[in-house]
C-alpha cells in the first residue's frame, strides 16, 4: 500500500539532498534578515511583548514561516513543473501506481522540505540567540510545525494542480499566502487587533500555525482551540488536495 507514493517521495528526497546545501543560503537569508531587522533593530523600542523578549517572541513564528513557505513552494512548483514542464506525472501515470500514490508522495515531499528547512533555520536562530528554550517543549512545537507544513504542502499541491500558468502561482503566493502569514501575528501580539475583528483573526488557520507554534515553544502546550484548528485544516486541505488532483487527472 502506497509503495508508489514512497518511491516518488524517495525520488524527491534524492533530488533535495543534491541541492540542499546550495539552497541553504537563500533558505536562511530571509528569516534571518527578518530576525535581525525586527528582533534587534526594534529591540530598543520594543523590549518585550507580554513579558516575552521581542527576539524570542518572533523566533518561533519565523521558524514556522520558513517551514510552511518551503512546504508551499516545493509542493506548488514541483507539482506544476512535473505536470506541465517535465511531464513526469504522465510517466508516473502509465505505471501501476495510482493517482493517490502520486499526490500523497508529492504532499509528503513538500512536507519534508518544510521540515528540513524549518529545522535548519531553527538551529541557526538557536545558535544566534542568547535565549535558551526548554527542550521538553520541543515535541509539541514539532507537532505544530508538522501539522502546519502538512497544511501548506496540501495548499501548494492544490495550486500546482489547478494552476497552469506559472505567474499565477506567484500571484497566489503574494496575494493569499503572504498576507495570511503576516496577518497572523508573527511580529505583533494579536491583542493589537481591534476586539471586533480579533475573533475572525483567531479563526485563521495561519493564526493557529503561528500563535500555536509560539505557545508550544514557550509554554509547552498548544491551546486546544488552535490544535483543533490545525488538525481540521490539515485534514481538510489533504482531502481537497487529493480530490482536486484526482479530478484533474481524470480530465
Amino acid at each position: 500500500m502506497f509503495k508508489g507514493a514512497f518511491s516518488i517521495w524517495g525520488r524527491d528526497m534524492r533530488v533535495m539532498r543534491r541541492s540542499i546545501v546550495s539552497e541553504l543560503v537563500s533558505v536562511i537569508a530571509y528569516p534571518l534578515t527578518l530576525y535581525l531587522a525586527f528582533g534587534f533593530g526594534l529591540k530598543g523600542y520594543i523590549t518585550d511583548v507580554n513579558g516575552v523578549p521581542y527576539p524570542l517572541f518572533i523566533a518561533p513564528g519565523l521558524i514556522s514561516m520558513t517551514a510552511v513557505n518551503a512546504a508551499f513552494d516545493e509542493s506548488s512548483w514541483s507539482m506544476w513543473f512535473h505536470r506541465k514542464v517535465q511531464r513526469t506525472i504522465e510517466e508516473y501515470r502509465v505505471t501501476p501506481v495510482t493517482v493517490y500514490d502520486i499526490v500523497i508522495g508529492k504532499i509528503f515531499s513538500g512536507f519534508s522540505q518544510g521540515a528540513v528547512k524549518g529545522t535548519v533555520v531553527f538551529l541557526v536562530i538557536l545558535a544566534l540567540t542568547p535565549f535558551r528554550i526548554d527542550y521538553t517543549h520541543l515535541p509539541v512545537y514539532l507537532l505544530c510545525i508538522a501539522l502546519s507544513s502538512m497544511t501548506f504542502s496540501c495548499l501548494g499541491t492544490i495550486c500546482g494542480t489547478v494552476i497552469d500558468k506559472p505567474e499565477n502561482i506567484g500571484r497566489v503566493q503574494s496575494v493569499v499566502i503572504v498576507p495570511l502569514i503576516f496577518m497572523a501575528g508573527i511580529f505583533f501580539p494579536l491583542s493589537s487587533y481591534p476586539s471586533s475583528i480579533l475573533p475572525l483573526i483567531q479563526l485563521l488557520p495561519t493564526t493557529a500555525v503561528f500563535e500555536g507554534a509560539r505557545d508550544a515553544l514557550l509554554t509547552g502546550a498548544i491551546p486546544s482551540q488552535y490544535l483543533v484548528n490545525l488538525l481540521l485544516t490539515a485534514a481538510a486541505c489533504f482531502t481537497i488536495a487529493v480530490y482536486t488532483f484526482n479530478r484533474k487527472m481524470a480530465e
Binding site: R11, R14, V15, R18, Q86, R87, T88, E90, E91
Partner: peptide, 8 residues
C-alpha cells in the same frame, strides 16, 4: 514528447 526526469 520525451518526459524524462532531468534531475535524475
Amino acid at each position: 514528447e520525451n518526459n524524462l526526469d532531468r534531475y535524475l
